[in-house]
């Protein structure tokens, strides 16, 4: 018998018989009743409390805010996608910004050290955000691969203010995650941190040291 058979058999021939299946009431996980402004306020308060930066911009002119952030932080090499509308607008908006735009759509084995050492920041779109916890959610794609929001020391994330849901439970249910999950789904709730040294908070451990969220307001 394989280990699999042994284990499953042992579980299925339970000495004390079948375990009654309890009902679960999820109402405590949803229905917060926060309007758009309150969601935005909660999101911002929570994510900035863990040292993320939030920059507000108009939908029509957000790439100017992006250019300013790059300039202020001395970012010279920015990795970003090609196909997502956010990436396309960014590329267009940064054409004259004097920033080298790095292409992540290549086998990572070919440029790993470059990504670790010579890319100052990664820009990604986001699927949305969660007000209750101050979290962004991302579904990486070939255009915006997983490491884009992980390896460069600065992660710049673009969030539409209408895309903030109340709770994580709401995100999963409302967006039908159970129907089809991507290779990797992520919640990002701030720059990397640790409290392992005598419970003193320190930022920038292994993930990005800085997280900047550009919140876009206004209709498309």
């Amino acid at each position: 018998m394989s280990a699999r058979d042994i284990i499953l058999n042992h579980l299925r021939t339970r000495t004390d018989g079948a375990i009654p299946v309890p009902e679960s009431d999820f109402s405590v996980m949803t229905g917060r009743g926060w309007d758009h402004d309150e969601r935005l306020a909660r999101f911002e308060q929570l994510i900035t409390s863990v040292h993320a930066e939030v920059v507000h911009a108009q939908r029509s002119s957000w790439t100017q805010a992006l250019a300013a952030i790059l300039h202020d932080k001395g970012i010279k090499r920015l990795a970003l996608g090609h196909e997502h509308p956010v990436a396309c607008e960014a590329r267009a908006g940064l054409a004259e910004a004097g920033v080298e735009l790095v292409d992540p759509a290549r086998e990572i084995e070919r440029w790993q050290r470059e990504q670790f050492e010579r890319v100052d920041a990664g820009l990604t779109s986001t699927g949305g955000a969660i007000a209750e916890t101050g979290s962004l959610w991302l579904w990486p794609t070939p255009d915006e691969p997983r490491r884009l929001s992980l390896v460069p020391s600065i992660h710049i994330a673009v969030l539409d203010s209408e895309a903030i849901d109340e709770t994580f439970f709401d995100v999963i249910e409302a967006h039908g995650w159970a129907r089809a999950m991507p290779t990797n789904a992520l919640l990002v709730s701030g720059p990397s941190k640790t409290a392992d040294i005598e419970q003193t908070l320190a930022y920038g451990v292994h993930g990005p040291k800085e997280l900047v969220v550009i919140v876009r307001h206004g209709a498309d």
Partner: peptide, 21 residues
Amino acid sequence: QHVTTYFNMINAPRQAGEFDG
């Protein structure tokens, strides 16, 4: 904590057409 910095949900290895993972 109300949430941790990262919540990482892994479903698959690098798929055809993907560039990392």
